Amino acid sequence: MRIGVTTGGGDCAGLNAVIRAVVKSAILEHRDEVIGIEDGFDQFIRRQAPSELTLHSVRGILARGGTILGTTNRGNPFHYVLPGMTKPTDCSDLVVRQVQQLGLDALIVIGGDGTMSIAYDLFRKGLPLVGVPKTIDNDLGATDYTFGFDTAVNFAMDALDRLRTTAESHERVMILEVMGRYAGWIALHTALAGGAHACLIPEIEYDPQLVVDRIRRSFAKEGNFYLIVVAEGAKPAGGVHSVVEHGTATRAERLGGAGEQLASAIQKHIDQDIRVTVLGHLQRGGSPTSFDRILATRFGYEAVRAVHASKFGQMVALKGQDIITVPMESAIAKLRLVDPKSPVVLAARSIGICFGDDE
């Protein structure tokens, strides 16, 4: 078979591990030809000739962050802004023709909810597609975990460990803002693993005064510093998300500033200094953890198996310890958000982590 593989959306650790697994499994087990499609679906629209991926092409990329194929979060072929134009155009038929002209028997698409939505729409137009879930936010439905998440959490945990020592030295309140968009998975796991005093997530609106009360109580009785992990999508009760850039027809809104929003709300009510650290894209880069390398490798292998089983319109997913395939439409039906009543949240509350509500 002649199999194409592409990466779309934001980059994260583990993408190259998937590409490597796809190439090695396809060639060594099935003697397939693997074609690398660069920059998501852009290469189809630009009508540039793709390159074949060989065993040599993927040598040494397991531990490398990013993606050797490049990626973009602006390349929706159904709403594509062509060079020299200002309004988006539907280029999906061009993508379909290019796949056919390249003689691809299947296309493995690696991406998050946005990329999976595009892939599903292209599948409905007749393209033989298999999806691989990718996002540091861990918010894609139908899979327990996505690769990139564990690496992001480990980096954020390390940052929180470092902030702890400087917070103790200066008796400060430290706010660490992490990514996650509208899901609080990164913040929740970072707070638990890093020993934060408070964790503010999008799924639980917070009351700034309750956070102030917990800070005062902590400094009076427990210690001389306070660590808060804030998800970029967190918002105060009755308030709105902090947005850096509003969304358009071709691009989703960009969140940011939740940490400063919190600091501004509580600074006038406490005596301690507050410092805000925003990790930003540092969470996306770097070498993947062992968990992400293994999960990404398993996903790549199972994606090739799905292609050979003609399981098109399906996405590989982790359920418990098993990799299964699920319909793409179920994966994109809704975001996978933190349940405020989940065992993980209850565990966090039981050890005193404040979520800024009255529970």
Rank of each mutant, 00 (worst) to 15 (best):
T6R: 09
V132M: 08
R254F: 01
G111C: 05
V243P: 05
T297C: 06
V230F: 06
I294K: 09
G148W: 11
A26M: 10
V132I: 09
A249D: 11
L346A: 12
E203R: 12
D42N: 10
R275G: 05
I37T: 00
S287P: 00
T115I: 01
V344S: 03
A306W: 03
Y206H: 10
P83S: 12
H308V: 06
D93W: 00
E171K: 08
I108E: 02
G352H: 04
I323R: 05
L107K: 08
A249Q: 10
Y301A: 11
K341S: 07
G114F: 00
E33S: 11
G131Y: 04
T115R: 15
S330T: 14
Q100T: 06
D150Y: 00
E222K: 13
S330E: 13
R216A: 14
G36M: 14
M174R: 13
R2F: 01
V58C: 02
L176R: 00
S25W: 04
P50C: 13
A309S: 07
I61R: 00
G285R: 08
R164M: 01
Y301Q: 08
I45D: 11
A187M: 10
L102P: 15
A193E: 09
G184P: 00
N224H: 15
V81A: 15
A252G: 03
M1L: 11
E203T: 10
N73M: 01
R336H: 13
D113P: 04
F123H: 14
D105S: 07
A187I: 10
A265C: 08
H197T: 01
I353N: 01
I351R: 04
L200P: 00
V173Y: 00
S290K: 05
P50D: 11
E177N: 09
R74L: 10
V243N: 07
R293H: 14
F291P: 14
A156Q: 12
K311D: 12
V18R: 03
L335Y: 05
I19H: 08
L318Q: 11
A142D: 14
Q321A: 04
M116G: 01
I68R: 05
A63K: 01
R2H: 03
D271Y: 14
R336Y: 15
G259S: 05
P88N: 07
C199A: 12
D39F: 13
G103K: 11
V132W: 03
L188P: 02
